[in-house]
Design a protein around this nucleic acid. Structure first.
Lengths: 340, 340
DNA sequence: CTGTTAGCGCTTTCAT
DNA sequence: ATGAAAGCGCTAACAG
C-alpha cells in the first residue's frame, strides 16, 4: 500500500469547481454559505476522505487546539476518573490533551507549565501540587491571555475559573455524622494546609466540633501525605496516645483504609471503638471490611465541567466568565461509622 | 501587560543581518553553518526569547512532534510510573504526549486510535485492552508508515517493536518459589488470556508445576479482571472448595492484596495455611500485612525504553529496528510466602 | 453568497 | 557557508 497524499481543501474545491475559501467556510458553520453548497462540500469531503490539516489551521489562526492538563499524580481512581471526563469533552470538541504529572512537587509543576507554555496550549487546567505556594509560575500564561482553570486543588485568582466541591461543607458533614454516631474525640488526618481541599475540610471539621460544643484539640490533627504508608504511621502514633480517639476522619480513602487495617491489626473494633470515615468514594472503600463511610466526589463530572468551561471560554461562548463552580458531593454512610 | 508578538526567525535574521534560512539552519545542527555564526544565532535567539513555532515547522515538514500513548487505564501505580518514564524522555527530546485511556475496551481503543491518527501523531505507543483480539485497527497507521510500539500488553507484529519483561519466566519463578516453600496446590488468578502478560505467566505457572511433577488442575485457574472486587469474589470461590489450595499466585498485586484480606477475614493464616504472591511490586505490597511477595516490574524503565525506541525510530537513529526488547524483572520475596 | 489574495513561520531545494 | 524563493494548507480581510 503506497503512502497516499492527503486530500486538501484545494482538491475538494477543484472537484466541485468552487474556491478553496468557500470550501473552508463550508466545512465550518459559516453563516454565509448556502445550505446546499455546504452539503455538497461536506459530502465530497467525506467521499474523498478529507482530514483537516490542523497545523495549517493552527499556523494561520495562531491556535493549537490543544489543552494542557497538569495534575499532581495520575495513579488514583479519582484522578483517572477526572481525566476520563476531560477526555470525553475535549475529544468531542476536537481538542487534544497534553497531560503531565507534577508528582506533588512545585519544581516539576513549574517545569510542566513552561513546557505547556512553549507548546502554546490554548488553555490549561491545573490541580495544584502539595507544596505550591503561589501561582506566579502561571503568570506568563495569563499575560498572554491563555485561560487557566483550576480544579479540585485550586487557587483563588480573579482571572481563573475554579471548580471544586464544597470541601468545607463536606468536612463539616463528615465530622457531624461522626459526632451523631456518638464520637466525642475525633482525629482528623489531612495533608498540606496550603491546599484548599485540606484546609477547607479542616475548617469544616473544626466548626462541626464547635457547634456541638466539643473542644478542638490540635493534637488530634495529623498532617501527612495521605498515602498508605502515612496511614500506617499515623495509626501507630494514634495507638500510642494515652486516650484513644473514638473517631477518625481521613481526608482521603487510601489513608482511611490503611488506618482501618492497622487498627484492626491492633485489635481495635471498628466502628465500635473507633469509627472511621474517608473521602473520595474510591472503589477501595467498598472493599475494606467494614465498608468505609466516605464522601462521593464527582470526579468525571468535575473533569467534564473543567473541560467544557475552558472550551467555552476558548470558543468565546456563553457562561465562560464564571469565577467559581461548585459541584455537589454526597456523604455516603457505610459500616465503618455506623454505631446506631 | 500587552500581548506581545512572538519572535520569529525573521526577527533574528534581521537583527543579525542574516537570511532566515541561515537562522533556521543555525538553530538546528546543520553541518554547513560556521560555528561562530551558529553561536551568534543561538545567543540572539536566547536574548530575544525566541520560541520555535512548531505549527509552521510541522506544516512544512509534515510532522507533528507528538507521540500518542494509549493505555488501558491510568489509575495504577504501575501505569503512572510508565507514563512518568515516557514523559521524561519525550520532554527531553521535544516531543509532546497525547495520552488516552481505552478503559479496557476494544471499542474505546479503536476510537482512540482513530483520534490519534487524525491528530497525525508521529508515532504511537500502546498497551492493549483486555478484549482486543487483533491489531487491525492499527493498520491505518502502519500503512502510513507511522511507527507503532507495544509495551507490557503487546501483540507480535513484524513492523512493531515490543517491550516487555519475560512474563513466562516471572510466572515460572513465582510458582517455583511457592513450590519450594512447600505449596503443592497452587491457585492462579489471572486475566484475559488474549493478553500476553497473562497467558505467559500462566504458561510459566504450568511449566513450573510440571517440572516438579505437580499435576495441573484447571479448576485452580481463575480468570477475572484482577480488581479488588474480583479478589473478593475469587477468594469466596476458593474458600468454598472442598480442598483449599495452599498457595495463591495472583497476576497483580491489587487482587493479591484483596485476597489476603478476605482470607484473613475468614481466619486463614498467611503464609502458614495459604502462601500468597502477587505481581508488579505496587507500594500496596509493602503495606499489607503480611507484606506481599511480588515481582518487581521496571515501569519507569519500560516507559523510557518505549519512548526512546520510538523517538530513535522517528529520528532515524540507530537501534530503532529491534523487534523486541525484554527488560529485567525481579522476584521479591516477602512474608506472605515465607514458610521456611 | 462566493471568490481573490495575502500571508501565518518555517524548511528546503537550488543558486551563488 | 549563506541567500533567494517557493510553498506546506488553511483562513480572513476585502471585494464583488
Amino acid at each position: 500500500m503506497s503512502i497516499q497524499k492527503a486530500t486538501t481543501i484545494y482538491d475538494i474545491a477543484e472537484a466541485l469547481s468552487l474556491s478553496p475559501a468557500t470550501v473552508s467556510r463550508g466545512l465550518k458553520e459559516h453563516p454565509a454559505i448556502r445550505k446546499e453548497t455546504r452539503k455538497r462540500i461536506l459530502d465530497k469531503a467525506n467521499e474523498m476522505g478529507y482530514q483537516a490539516n490542523s497545523f495549517a489551521s493552527n499556523l494561520r489562526r495562531n491556535r493549537t487546539n490543544t489543552i494542557g492538563v497538569i495534575v499532581p499524580r495520575l495513579n488514583s481512581y479519582f484522578m483517572s476518573t477526572v481525566i476520563a471526563g476531560i477526555e470525553r469533552v475535549a475529544n468531542k470538541s476536537g481538542y487534544n490533551l497534553l497531560i503531565s504529572q507534577s508528582m506533588e512537587s512545585i519544581t516539576k509543576e513549574m517545569a510542566n507549565v513552561k513546557t505547556m507554555f512553549n507548546t502554546r496550549v490554548d488553555g490549561l487546567m491545573v490541580s495544584l501540587a502539595y507544596d505550591t505556594e503561589d501561582v506566579d509560575h502561571f503568570e506568563m500564561l495569563l499575560r498572554k491571555g491563555i485561560p487557566l482553570i483550576f480544579f479540585d486543588r485550586i487557587f483563588e485568582h480573579p482571572n481563573c475559573t475554579s471548580i471544586t466541591i464544597d470541601n468545607y461543607k463536606a468536612g463539616y458533614e463528615v465530622t457531624n455524622h461522626l459526632i451523631e454516631q456518638g464520637c466525642k474525640r475525633i482525629a482528623h488526618i489531612t495533608a498540606s494546609q496550603k491546599r484548599n481541599v485540606y484546609a477547607d475540610r479542616l475548617r469544616g471539621y473544626k466548626d462541626a466540633l464547635a457547634n456541638k460544643g466539643i473542644p478542638f484539640d490540635k493534637k488530634l490533627v495529623f498532617i501527612n501525605n495521605l498515602s498508605d504508608q502515612a496511614g500506617i504511621e499515623v495509626t501507630r502514633s494514634i495507638l500510642e496516645m494515652k486516650t484513644l480517639p473514638d473517631g477518625i476522619f481521613s481526608a482521603n480513602d487510601a489513608c482511611a483504609v490503611s488506618c482501618i487495617r492497622e487498627l484492626k491489626e491492633a485489635g481495635i473494633k471498628i466502628p465500635e471503638q473507633i469509627a472511621v470515615a474517608g473521602f473520595n468514594n474510591d472503589p477501595l472503600s467498598k472493599v475494606i471490611k467494614p465498608n468505609l463511610t466516605t464522601v462521593e466526589y464527582p470526579g468525571e463530572e468535575m473533569g467534564e465541567m473543567a473541560a467544557s468551561t475552558l472550551i467555552r471560554r476558548l470558543d468565546r461562548l456563553e457562561g465562560a466568565n464564571l469565577n467559581s463552580i461548585v459541584l455537589r458531593h454526597e456523604l455516603i454512610v457505610r459500616e465503618s461509622s455506623k454505631r446506631k
